[in-house]
Design a protein around this nucleic acid. Structure first.
Lengths: 234, 234
DNA sequence: CCAAAAGTGTTTTCGTTACACCCATGC
DNA sequence: GCATGGGTGTAACGAAAACACTTTTGG
């Protein structure tokens, strides 16, 4: 690493004092299951927060972009590498981590739970309903809340919830994801109207199977149409 | 600093390798002058970007919150400590800084240019029109663009532009700030209607002075009213 | 009296909300 | 045939956009 003496504008600290901070990335990985929004958490094993839930994170390596670090964590934990991921906020309180000065950048991610197998055996990885999560280790509850809020803002005008669903889905499933994310009930007729107007969906001319009632049509998300539309606005 | 060995889940790196990253804060300080949105920049003096404009930033100290670091920078550069400041994004590309691995968290701030005196003499601090800024040092143009975009989203439903104006202002000035920030023209009648409806303003029963035309009424921002309203919604 | 900006209302348009009935399928 | 959710249309409302003339002051 090169000299960095030009940083120390204010004199009191030597350069190496500035390199006493570690940077981590924490991923809030959202999934959708049984009509609920869930988040992937793991039992914390450091003594100060023993047994509490914590987010999935790791230190950023010296030769690694922070964005790459967040993809790495996702890949390591879920096996997925083609996922939606968005940086949300950086948390930098001095004492947020008992092991030292660690600043963390939070990302949220949206995955389809059924797309992958967790390595549930070798650690206590767990999909936890967002509504029922209480205290968490470190400042992770705060991070989670910040990410949920950001997710809610995001889904209002960006087609991201599709990442929580399988490739083919019914309108009922789609609405149910929105209701879980926004924590509210939506009018079925208005919901359908809105989505057809948006032109984000492609009718697959297929029907649901194995449902104990009239099967609904299946759709997929039309990324191409959305890209065209987004362009138009700007 | 305590032991941090519990971080190294993946074995290849020793703990001290993780503390090879420095963290900085960069402030995009916006002001409003002569009908234009301006940003406070300084001539860069590191050799790779000699003479180019850069944002105001500094390394975060080991015992300093990142939010405190951003307030410190503002205070040092503008003398102001009661300002609007908001974290925007963290930029973490490996080679973004030629002097080493430096990850930076960007903040934007809104100040009233006339509220303070820059120390313009002892360095090349400068209010630059946002529209006319070209290349900048490091990835600072990218950071600036990201912050402008965030600012535009923010002003759409939060009363933050008041921070760019003096305590007392006319509706014409207020509209002019919005037009500068959003880079568009607004209809005067609809603009007035909207603001009176919002109930963010207090009529001071005073008039502009020294204007070569009919003087407009002066208003101030009513923070109390806004707080009450924001509460109501939630 | 002329220039320049302040101040003021109404109409139209469009997107959002609210709301109720028939239809297709599984059992 | 009945239970369950699928599928559809319309009216009311409210927010935003478009738009022009009169008033006040300084010079």
């Amino acid at each position: 690493m090169k000299q960095i003496s030009r940083f120390s504008h204010f004199g009191e600290l030597s350069d190496k004092d500035y390199f006493r901070i570690a940077l981590s990335v924490d991923c809030v990985i959202f999934g959708f299951e049984e009509g609920e929004l869930k988040v992937l958490v793991i039992k914390c094993n450091i003594k100060e927060y023993k047994g509490m839930w914590s987010l999935l994170g790791d230190l950023v390596r010296p030769d690694e972009d922070i964005n790459s670090a967040s993809y790495r964590i996702l890949k390591e934990r879920t096996g997925l590498d083609d996922v939606y991921l968005e940086q949300v906020h950086t948390f930098g309180k001095v004492n947020r981590h008992p092991a030292g000065r660690v600043i963390t950048t939070a990302y949220f991610s949206l995955v389809n739970i059924k797309d992958h197998q967790l390595k549930l055996s070798d650690n206590e990885l767990h999909w936890h309903p967002v509504k029922e999560i209480g205290d968490m280790a470190f400042d992770h509850k705060n991070i989670l809340d910040t990410c949920i809020e950001r997710l809610r803002e995001k889904v209002e005008d960006h087609p991201v919830v599709f990442n929580l669903l399988p490739k083919k889905f019914s309108l009922r499933e789609l609405q149910s994801v929105y209701e879980a994310v926004l924590n509210c009930e939506l009018d079925r007729r208005n919901f359908r109207k809105k989505f057809f107007m948006m032109d984000w969906l492609v009718d697959l001319n297929e029907l649901e199977e194995d449902v104990p009632h009239r099967p609904g049509k299946l759709y997929k998300f039309n990324a191409a149409k959305f890209a065209k539309k987004a362009k138009k606005i700007s």
